[in-house]
Design a protein around this nucleic acid. Structure first.
Length: 234
DNA sequence: TTGTGATCATCT
DNA sequence: AGATGATCACAA
């Protein structure tokens, strides 16, 4: 097999053995449409994204050899790398926030930033931009140039500041007062299959209250700044 | 039912 | 327009 080619066979792709191999694979699929890539890995791409919200991420996972399934582990377990697709609008800016991880509300009091799931998840990331102009049909959207990201000191500091404030609110029973307005780069928003989901969280007295499940998200302006930095450093 | 993949739908 | 809060699909 030629260097840099992606070993497709019956839709199965072996996990990459190194960061370099992963980045090469990712860059090898740049320019392909989601429809083309989906066909290679055996995933159908509907015209409407309303019923296929995660399809871009799932196609890229399969195409690059990520460990299938949903687990609280990096997508590329042996490399410790998390895969994130970034939807870009017509001007090249991220259209949406980036989901980082679900929050264990009742465990926040026992965690600090250094041991947080957020830092763990974002320590090594492969960003794969995907064309996402709303007028472009899902299957016609093209994959962009991928970048490996590890947060630098400043980026880490900004995330830490937000995380610590939000974690403190959750741990002290103020989860109900958290809105998406809080956090400069990292925010807490609902993350649920439907509006009836509830999760345990501490209240002000340390007792149990039930609230909607939440997750950490990166704001679009932050991921945009990250992508700008990575492009500039090439 | 929960976690991961995210985008949708509405409000400001 | 941009952002927040709500929601959809799928795997384990």
């Amino acid at each position: 097999m030629k260097k840099g080619t992606v070993p497709f066979s019956e839709g199965l792709v072996e996990p990459p053995e190194s960061e370099e191999e992963l980045l090469e694979r990712a860059r090898g699929v740049a320019g392909l449409t989601l429809g083309e890539l989906g066909a290679r890995v055996g995933l159908d791409v509907p015209d409407e994204s309303r019923r296929a919200k995660g399809i871009a991420g799932q196609i890229l996972e399969k195409a690059l050899g990520a460990t299938a399934g949903s687990r609280a582990e990096p997508d590329f377990v042996t490399l410790g790398i998390e895969l994130k697709t970034i939807p870009l609008d017509a001007t090249g800016k991220p259209r949406e926030s980036t989901f980082v991880c679900s929050i264990s509300l009742s465990a926040m009091a026992d965690t600090d930033w250094e041991g947080s799931t957020v830092l763990k998840k974002l320590s090594k990331v492969l960003f794969v931009p995907v064309e996402a102009a709303s007028k472009t049909p899902l299957g016609d959207r093209r994959v962009g140039r991928a970048y490996r990201w590890s947060p630098n000191a400043e980026e880490q500091e900004r995330m830490r500041a937000d995380w610590e404030r939000l974690a403190e609110m959750i741990a002290s029973g103020e989860v109900a007062r958290i809105t998406g307005h809080l956090g400069e780069v990292l925010q807490v928003r609902p993350k649920a299959p439907h509006g009836r989901s509830r999760r345990r969280a501490p209240d002000e007295e340390g007792a149990v209250q039930w609230t909607m499940p939440r997750g950490f998200y990166l704001r679009p302006a932050f991921t945009q700044a990250v992508l700008t930095r990575l492009r500039a450093e090439e």
